[in-house]
Design a protein around this nucleic acid. Structure first.
Lengths: 130, 130
DNA sequence: CATGAAGTTTACGTAAACGTAAACTTTTTT
DNA sequence: AAAAAAGTTTACGTTTACGTAAACTTCATG
């Protein structure tokens, strides 16, 4: 059972939806992060491409380079039939998880500091307005 | 009451401690993020400079540009005597907090996905080894 | 049918964050 | 004092992630 006539998107639709330029989308393709099909010259994006775009943008917000995001995609797509392969993958996952946990801590710390600074400002403001 | 003979550091010490190059440290100075004093030609870093370096590196881990980190420093140093100034600062803080909260969510999402993928791999491995 | 909107390729430009190197001075160590 | 280690300035090079532009094709439509 295969799906027929699935939902597709044009480059312009995606650009608008994600608020990025078409140039960016083509660039991601150039970097092998997405692989739209073609209808003649025109690029046709499917659901999978759209999801990947979303992941790319989330990666960007986290400071991932496109290459890094690409490596994550590889992890998802990787051939899971070899035990040594699997172990390699799991090491990479563990490393990424560790990095992200560090980031999580960093963010929490900054949030705390900013909240402190905010309180500080509020106080100063109260003083001025008294 | 002022402190005398405070602890200072050489550029090499800091480079080693933070595992970055001296080039980077000079670059941060060039970008006005730190302001070491001089003893003749040689740069002398104090405790404050060291803390800032740490903050710069944490910012980098969070994907902050140097300019952004610089703006955060300005928030800390800002003149808190003007009410309009204070309000501007608090807006910036609120914006940053909002951005960071988004990042926090992003990270949590990726961590969950990675954990899922990890479980997925473990299962595949178990299958192979049976 | 022409015209405007959307798409395409090709290619050069740019900003950020350093790397690398040259050429020199200062400081420390032997 | 000679050599090694650490520091300095100046300047060009590099990578990443697109921006911008030119010049062209395809498609919808008034």
């Amino acid at each position: 059972m295969s799906k027929s006539s699935a939902i597709t998107y044009s480059i312009g639709e995606l650009a608008k939806e994600f608020d990025i330029t078409t140039r960016s989308i083509r660039f991601y393709e150039d970097q092998q992060l997405i692989h739209p099909t073609r209808k003649g010259q025109t690029r046709i994006y499917n659901q999978r491409d759209k999801v990947r775009l979303k992941l790319i943008l989330r990666g960007k917000r986290l400071g991932f380079s496109l290459a890094e995001t690409g490596r994550l995609f590889e992890l998802y797509d990787a051939d899971k039939s070899s035990a040594t392969q699997l172990n390699t993958i799991m090491e990479l996952i563990a490393q990424k998880k560790s990095d992200l946990s560090q980031q999580l801590e960093d963010i929490k710390a900054v949030l705390i500091e900013l909240t402190g600074l905010e309180a500080n400002c509020k106080e100063a403001l109260a003083q001025i307005e008294k």
